[in-house]
Structures are given as structure tokens and as C-alpha cells.
């Protein structure tokens, strides 16, 4: 295991425990988030950021982690403190041309709103209209609109464009990590349930149909974990569109894992009282951000077909920088 791998495991465990005992907020300060953001170029910090995102998914806590990661690439040309700035994250909507989402408690932060083709703006939360997003999942999120003139700073399209690709990549790796955290936790709950719940005189987990359902779900977890870890290890050397592949896989596998867990819980899992719907709702919500699985999967197919790019990865490249 490399040094960065050990860091990842350590931080994941520490962050999970810290988040589970918190009051619902991911304890970013305690976890050294500001230093991590400032030092993202370092492999250990890079790994730590996404370990924290995964812990957030496991504990279903909330924070501005995703938004501050998304903002970070835009701030390199400024002297702003990255911890104070959060970016709104785009999602598709049938009802509006574009929806921007602010995740976590952003009061007191500067908000970066990216407008592809027109640069980006930095705005005080006071100058925004924030509409609470009311969904299960223990989410703290708002739909953002800005139609004023009082933006504090404008970032030119040239500079925004240079940051945009990296911002989307960081957002996608973080969202995928959080989806993985949520999905692996609800699966662990389902495995426990299958061990405890008895029917026909024995635990339902002794029946092969249930065993295989859970084994498939675990396979989806292992697959997603392997690709998340690959993305973290490769960093800037990742193949083209790797963040899109990861995000698409996270949405697909994340939802499938939640569905198989629900099948195991049976009816009780589909109650408001049971925790399953919180995990499921969080995964669905994150799937919708920064490119859903359905949209990205189709786009990746089109890209492969029309560009003739050879997507095969060499073993030596995957070994990553040592």
C-alpha cells in the first residue's frame, strides 16, 4: 500500500467516526479541511479530501465540502481564502434551463456561480435568492438564483474556462465518493438485517436468493471503490474523461446498491421511519449533480464512437506515480 493509500484509509476511518458522532454536520474544521483545500496538489491532501467526502456519505452528514472543492480551481488566480468560498453546482432540470445548487450551510461564505461562456461571478449569500431543497437524505441544500448587479467579483471567461474542467472533475470525484459512502453503509445495514431477520425458521440471509442479491450489491461496491481509488491515485494523470466515467458509474452502481438493499429489507425498508430512504435519496440527489449517470453514460458512448479514441489503459500508467 502506498503512503497516500494509508492516508486515505486512516482519514476515512477518523472522518467516519467524527461524522457519526457529530450533530449532523461533517466536522470539517476538526478534520483540517482548510489545509487540505490549500494543499490539494499534494497526493496526501488529495486523498484526504475524498476520504472525507466518502465519510460524509457514510454518516449522511452535511457540509460545504463539495462546494468548496468545486470552487478551489477558480481561486488559484486570486488571493481569496479557499475555505470561505463555495461554488454552486449545476444540475439539469426539465423546468428550467439550468439549476444551480448550493450544498451545506453557506451563510457567511462567498458563492461562486459559474456561467459557462460568460465567466464566473463571486457573490455574497445576501445577494442570492436561496430556495431550500426539501428532500430526505439529511441534506442541507438550496437552489440558487442571482439576478442582481451586486456581484463582488467577476472572473473572466478565459480564466473561468481554465478552471472549469478541473472544478467539474473535483466535484465528480467528491460526489462519487459520497455516493459510495452512502451506498456501502446502506448495504451493510441490509447484510445485518439479513442476518437478524428470520422467516421459515431461519435468518433470511441463509436463503441463496437473498445471499446472491447482497453479493451482487457488494460487487457493485467493490467496483465503485476500485474506480474511486484509481481516480484518487491518478490525479492529474487520469485518462481523458475519467471523472465522467467515475461519476456515471457511481450513479449507476449507487442506485443499484440501494435497490438491492431495499429488496432485502422488504416492506419495512420502504417506510419513512426506516433510514433506507435517506441513503437512497442522497444517492439520487448526488447522481443528479454535475452530470447524471444516464446523461454521462450516453455522452461517453457518443464520445467513444465519434472520436475514435482508444480508451484502453496501460498497466504501467495505472500503476500511477510512485
Amino acid at each position: 500500500m502506498s503512503a497516500a493509500d494509508s492516508t486515505y484509509h486512516e482519514i476515512l476511518e477518523v472522518a467516519t467516526k467524527a461524522s457519526e458522532r457529530s450533530d449532523g454536520a461533517t466536522p470539517l474544521t476538526e478534520l483540517g479541511w482548510a489545509d487540505i483545500l490549500a494543499g490539494l496538489g499534494d497526493p496526501d491532501a488529495f486523498a484526504a479530501a475524498f476520504a472525507i467526502a466518502r465519510a460524509q456519505g457514510r454518516a449522511l452528514t452535511h457540509s460545504t465540502a463539495l462546494g468548496s472543492l468545486a470552487a478551489q480551481p477558480y481561486l488559484e488566480a486570486t488571493d481569496l481564502n479557499p475555505g470561505r468560498v463555495v461554488a454552486a453546482i449545476a444540475r439539469e432540470s426539465r423546468l428550467a434551463s439550468r439549476v444551480d445548487v448550493l450544498i451545506g450551510d453557506s451563510i457567511g461564505c462567498l458563492v461562486l456561480v459559474d456561467r459557462p461562456g460568460e465567466g464566473a461571478i463571486l457573490v455574497d449569500t445576501d445577494a442570492l435568492t436561496l430556495l431550500p431543497i426539501d428532500l430526505p437524505g439529511r441534506l442541507v441544500a438550496h437552489q440558487v438564483s442571482f439576478d442582481g448587479d451586486s456581484c463582488l467579483t467577476e472572473i473572466s471567461e478565459d480564466r473561468a474556462a481554465a478552471a472549469r474542467v478541473r472544478s467539474v472533475a473535483l466535484t465528480r470525484i467528491a460526489a462519487a465518493s459520497e455516493m459510495l459512502g452512502a451506498a456501502e453503509t446502506v448495504l451493510a445495514m441490509a447484510v445485518q438485517y439479513a442476518t437478524d431477520r428470520e422467516q421459515f425458521g431461519r435468518p433470511i440471509g441463509t436463503f441463496q436468493a437473498v445471499r446472491h442479491l447482497l453479493a451482487w450489491a457488494e460487487t457493485d461496491v467493490v467496483a465503485l471503490d476500485a474506480v474511486v481509488r484509481q481516480a484518487i491515485r491518478l490525479g492529474d494523470t487520469a485518462p481523458e474523461r475519467f471523472d465522467a466515467v467515475l461519476k456515471a458509474l457511481a450513479g449507476r452502481n449507487g442506485r443499484q446498491i440501494c435497490e438491492r438493499a431495499l429488496q432485502t429489507f422488504g416492506g419495512i425498508g420502504f417506510t419513512a421511519e426506516h433510514d433506507h430512504h435517506h441513503f437512497h435519496s442522497r444517492v439520487l440527489f448526488l447522481d443528479g449533480l454535475a452530470g447524471s449517470s444516464a446523461v454521462l453514460t450516453h455522452e461517453l458512448g457518443t464520445w467513444l464512437r465519434t472520436t475514435g479514441v482508444d480508451p484502453a489503459y496501460p498497466a504501467a500508467v495505472l500503476a500511477g506515480p510512485d
Partner: peptide, 29 residues
């Protein structure tokens, strides 16, 4: 996969994308 992209068309892009996701998963694992 690569050997068929020349004559494939857009109707099956999601299936191609899905195969690519699966390939990425087995590559990593």
C-alpha cells in the same frame, strides 16, 4: 469495442457507454 465504432450509430450510444463503465470497473479491480 474500438473495432466496431466506425460503423456503429447513435442509437446505441448508451449501451456503448454502459459497456465502457463495466470495462473501467474491471480494469480498476
Amino acid at each position: 469495442l474500438h473495432g466496431c465504432t466506425d460503423f456503429a450509430d447513435t442509437r446505441h450510444d448508451s449501451a456503448l457507454g454502459n459497456a465502457f463503465l463495466d470495462l473501467t470497473a474491471v480494469t480498476a479491480a
